[in-house]
C-alpha cells in the first residue's frame, strides 16, 4: 500500500483522482502545506480550472518552492492536465502569471481550426526514449497545451489541429496533459508504472 499525497489546489475536482488512486491500491491523503509536499514519498498535482487560479492557490499556500524542489530532486511526482502546464513558465490563458518554472515552456491556446475545449480520447504517441509512457488513447479536457517537449525530458505527442504535448517524463516525474485516472485500463496501467518506477532507482 503506497501513501500518496494529493495536493489540494482548491479549484480541482478531486473525486476522480482519489478514486483512481484507490483502484491502484494507494492510500491517498489530501495535503495543502509545504512540509507535507516536501516529505511525501509520492505527490500528485491535479489541475482543473484556470492557470492563474491554481497558481494563486499554490502561491498563497507556499507550495511553489516545495513542488519545484521535489521535481528537481527527481522525487516521485505525477502532474495532471493543468498540473503539467503550471510546471512551465507561463500560459497564454493568464498573461502576467508566472508558473512554477521547472522548465521554460509557455502554454498556448489551441488554434481556431478545432473545437475548444478538446474533449475526448486522442492517440498518445510516445518517443522511443519514454520509459513510463506507452502508445494508447488518453482522455483530454483542455483548451491550452504545450507544443514543445522541454529540454531534458522524454515526451509523447498527440494531434489536435497540429501536434501538441500529451505527456512528459523524467525519471519518476510524470506530467500528463490527459487524465490518466479517466483513461480506462491504459491510464490505470500508466499510474501503476509510475508507482512502480518510483520504487526503483533511475537507470544511469
Amino acid at each position: 500500500m503506497n501513501d500518496v499525497a494529493v495536493i489540494r489546489t482548491g479549484t480541482a475536482n478531486l473525486a476522480s483522482v482519489l478514486a483512481g488512486l484507490k483502484r491502484a491500491k494507494c492510500k491517498a491523503v489530501l495535503v495543502d502545506e509545504p512540509g507535507a509536499v516536501a516529505s511525501a514519498d509520492y505527490v500528485v498535482l491535479p489541475g482543473v480550472g484556470a492557470f492563474a487560479a491554481i497558481m494563486d492557490q499554490l502561491n498563497s499556500r507556499g507550495l511553489v518552492d516545495a513542488i519545484r524542489q521535489r521535481v528537481n530532486e527527481a522525487r516521485p511526482t505525477l502532474a495532471i492536465c493543468l498540473g503539467l502546464q503550471v510546471l512551465g513558465s507561463s500560459s497564454e490563458e493568464s498573461p502576467g502569471t508566472e508558473g512554477i518554472g521547472v522548465f521554460d515552456v509557455r502554454a498556448s491556446r489551441f488554434g481556431e481550426a478545432v473545437r475548444v475545449p478538446q474533449l475526448g480520447w486522442n492517440l498518445v504517441r510516445p518517443a522511443p526514449d519514454c520509459r513510463l509512457l506507452t502508445g494508447g488513447y488518453g482522455y483530454f479536457a483542455n483548451s491550452y497545451r504545450l507544443t514543445e517537449i522541454p529540454q531534458g525530458w522524454a515526451g509523447a505527442m498527440a494531434d489536435y489541429g497540429g501536434a501538441f504535448v500529451a505527456a512528459i517524463e523524467r525519471g519518476p516525474i510524470l506530467a500528463c496533459q490527459f487524465h490518466p485516472e479517466l483513461s480506462g485500463k491504459w491510464g490505470a496501467s500508466l499510474i501503476e508504472r509510475w508507482l512502480g518506477a518510483a520504487r526503483e532507482p533511475a537507470p544511469c
Binding site: S16, A19, R23, H179, E181, S183, G184, K185
Partner: peptide, 9 residues
Amino acid sequence: VREGLSIPL
C-alpha cells in the same frame, strides 16, 4: 459509480 469507473462521468 465513481468508485469503479475509470472513464469520464
